[in-house]
Design a protein around this nucleic acid. Structure first.
Length: 430
RNA sequence: GGCGCCGUGGCCGAGAGGUUAGGCAGAGGCCUGCAAAGCCUCGUACAGCGGUUCGAGUCCGCUCGGCGCCUCCA
């Protein structure tokens, strides 16, 4: 299998199975309900693990939760509650919402606040190696000491500008590894530099290495994390002589249409809302239609189409099974092996009338539920039976009235040689 | 301004020098009391302008347009 790697800007071949593949995915900062866009790296990680297992690898997927950050302090202060209370509640939401995706859980879901000792140790080593320095209760990474800095994002070290003006920093490009406690911050940890908390990027280096080791195969996350987040992670870990991630997979952004994707708060669609409005299957099919590294628009039209696709898969299971021609699975696999092209794999799946093969393919994406036919409730069955007798008596007005009633209940009556069949009418628009 | 990604038919998306991608939507037909499903038929698209070539969505150049990052962000 080959995957596009941001660092080398090309396709990188994975060692052939069997073997182990370790994946680290940058998760979200928890201070409010996550939005649909946040589901992309999560879903991609889960699917990748699923496919790699299918093809014979031993996979470990780590997906972190950032529960200490400026945003957490700020939002907690706004609500007038302790920051730990907010981050714990928001972590709960995150679990709830991602659970409802129905993809299971990553193997490890570490939280920054549970990794403080490792983070401190990491920073100490950087200081010992002169890659970092303490100043005024803070600790900063010496960007100039890491010649490869900028390689991941394509930025030139000389052209980099100050991230945030600070008289304490030796070089304005340096970034914080540890930040001394500020008066408005209600959560802090003991460290060799006094009370404080981890900087923005060190947590990921520490968590990834704690759970996967100094070297691992894949590092995922949103494209917006390339710089500075991932650039800094790479710098921290490589400065300790660790190889760190071999492949960097950056997923494209979801573009929220509607109100012109303004940054105003009202414009964000939460994962919860999408799950409630469209259901998990439609959301997952939507993710399937898009190529993981490319941006994709999120709007009702696109979701309606995803819903229609989901419905067309359900239809396959209502129709007779027809064995797929030889090589069908191989074509499906080839699509995924080629940079995990789910749109291409989807196209192959749509050609199948083979129940077994389709169920197996859908299963990889957590969509086996599309193969299960829902049982109609007794009252709907009664309506259908009454309609049948009306039809038998050629009382078609009554039959049509009953059809409408059945539809109002969310079902569709289909007549066939043996009588009728009830099919759940799925939402295909909002 | 810098770095990077991208522009394919109504929509989502394949294709990577020379034959139909596929799906969804739409139109017509068969079937049906009416439907649904199914089956059949129908789209000649590749941002624009030049260039290379016997031949270009597919290679080169330019232009236009969109997006991400450069500040917290999946």
């Amino acid at each position: 299998m080959r995957l596009y790697d941001t660092l080398t800007r090309g396709l990188v071949e994975l060692p052939a199975p069997p073997g182990s593949i370790r994946i680290y995915v940058c998760g979200s900062t928890v201070y409010q309900r996550v939005h649909v866009g946040n589901s992309r790296p999560f879903v991609l990680g889960m699917w990748l693990r699923s496919w790699l297992k299918e093809t014979g690898y031993d996979v470990t997927l780590v997906h972190n939760i950032t529960d200490v950050d400026d945003k957490v302090y700020a939002e907690a202060a706004r609500q007038g509650i302790p920051s730990r209370e907010l981050s714990e509640r928001a972590t709960g939401w995150f679990f709830e919402d991602t659970d409802d995706l129905g993809l299971g859980r990553p193997d490890v879901e570490p939280r920054a606040t549970e990794t403080i000792p490792e983070i401190i140790e990491f920073i100490q080593e950087l200081v010992e190696r002169d890659a970092a320095y303490a100043a005024n209760g803070d600790v900063y990474f010496r960007v100039a000491r890491f010649p490869e800095y900028g390689r991941l994002s394509g930025a030139k070290l000389e052209e980099m500008v100050a991230q945030e003006e600070s008289p304490i920093k030796e070089d304005q490009r340096d970034f914080a590894l540890w930040k001394g406690q500020k008066s408005h911050e209600d959560a802090a940890w003991e460290s060799p530099w006094g009370l404080g908390r981890p900087g923005w990027h060190i947590e990921c280096s520490a968590m990834a290495e704690k759970h996967l080791g100094e070297t691992f195969e894949i590092h995922g996350g949103g494209n917006d994390l390339r710089f500075p987040h991932h650039e800094n992670e790479l710098a921290q870990s490589r400065s300790l002589g660790h190889e760190f991630a071999k492949i960097w997979m950056h997923n494209g952004m979801l573009e929220l249409d509607e109100a012109k994707m303004s940054k105003s708060l009202g414009n964000v669609v939460t994962l919860r809302e999408v799950l409630d409005d469209w259901g998990r299957e439609t959301l997952l099919v939507f993710h399937l239609t898009a190529f993981w590294s490319k941006p994709i628009d999120f709007d009702d039209a696109v979701m309606s189409q995803a819903a229609a696709r989901a419905e067309s898969f359900r239809e396959v299971f209502r129709n007779p099974h027809e064995p797929a021609p030889a090589g069908a699975w191989e074509r499906f696999a080839a699509a995924l092996e080629d940079d995990f092209s789910t749109p291409a794999a989807l196209a192959v799946m749509h050609e199948w009338h083979d129940h077994d093969l389709l169920r197996r393919a859908l299963g990889i994406f957590g969509l086996e539920s599309l193969a299960a036919e829902e049982e109609a409730p007794p009252e709907v069955v009664t309506l259908a039976e009454r309609r049948q007798s009306a039809r038998a008596n050629r009382n078609f007005d009554e039959a049509d009235r009953l059809r409408a009633e059945i539809e109002a209940a969310g079902w569709e009556a289909r007549d066939d040689a043996n009588g009728f069949r009830l099919v759940r009418r799925q939402l295909t628009s909002r």
